[in-house]
Amino acid sequence: MPTEELARRWWVRGRRIASVERAGKFIDDVGFALLFPAPKPIGPSLWEAVAGEDDEPFGEGMGENEQRVWTWKDELPRRGLAWYGAYLGGRGSFLSPTLLAALYPGEGELDDHEHLDLSPAAHELAAALAIEPLSSATLRQLLGDKNKYQRAIGELQRNLLVTTAGVQESSNGWPAALLTLTCEQFDVGGTQDHSAAAAQYLDTMLTASAADLARAFRWSTPKARDLLDDLTHSGRATFDGRTYQPLTPR
């Protein structure tokens, strides 16, 4: 459970989110959010901003709030309001377009994947998506193995190369996520700014260690510490010998 200060920062207190547009504003404000909360708080979650901190997701099946956030995980990226994929802690996560641009590792080109150290399966999926958006079912068929697909798509999402872009109806009645290259859905490439990303992380978490930041964005701890120290030296953060805090917390 987040502290009172974090609960306000993470939109857990106050008016609940009831529209996809307001969900987009929430993610734009916090910069990053999980779809559902993690056992140990590692960031805000869309679920808690929608349902509050006392409701457990799927406690009584697919209710109204569950239906909302499950639909919005595909609708937010389709509208360009937030990137979605398995990112923070390997969990379903949203990134604001601004934070995404600061973290994106390529030049915003269809062949960005070719310049990264990825598995052959991940390269194969990225090359297929460079031609057109495809459903998760189609991509699984392309690789011919569900586990191989899960590893490859997870790899692409960890590197922010792929996101969802709505859903596609399937013959079995269950819609499949439609996937596309991030650079086709968002304005990214050539704007990487890890200092700005570190500042956003600190602004959202209110207090964090270098190890916390490193785990969140998959950086080395020395790199995370250097970035946080730079924020401290420039007067944008403080350090108490253990953790960092934004100089003017919300």
Results as ranks from 00 to 15, higher is better:
154 G>C: 09
180 T>A: 07
159 N>H: 13
104 Y>P: 04
43 G>P: 04
92 G>L: 13
139 L>S: 01
134 L>Q: 09
14 G>W: 12
151 R>P: 06
32 F>G: 01
17 I>C: 07
48 E>M: 03
66 E>A: 07
222 P>Y: 10
52 G>A: 05
28 D>M: 01
44 P>R: 00
195 S>H: 05
152 A>E: 07
118 L>P: 03
160 L>M: 11
197 A>R: 12
94 F>R: 11
48 E>R: 00
164 T>W: 05
12 V>A: 02
203 D>N: 15
215 R>F: 15
5 E>I: 07
190 G>A: 09
211 A>Q: 10
145 D>K: 10
178 L>E: 10
87 Y>D: 06
165 A>S: 10
201 Y>A: 05
97 P>C: 09
18 A>W: 05
157 Q>I: 11
115 H>D: 08
83 W>D: 12
18 A>K: 10
196 A>G: 08
46 L>W: 14
67 Q>F: 04
146 K>I: 14
32 F>Q: 01
127 A>S: 11
15 R>L: 14
20 V>P: 00
83 W>N: 10
22 R>A: 05
125 L>H: 03
162 V>S: 06
155 E>K: 01
210 A>F: 11
8 R>M: 06
216 A>M: 14
12 V>G: 01
67 Q>N: 09
79 R>N: 10
12 V>Q: 01
22 R>Q: 12
122 A>E: 07
86 A>D: 12
180 T>I: 08
112 D>S: 11
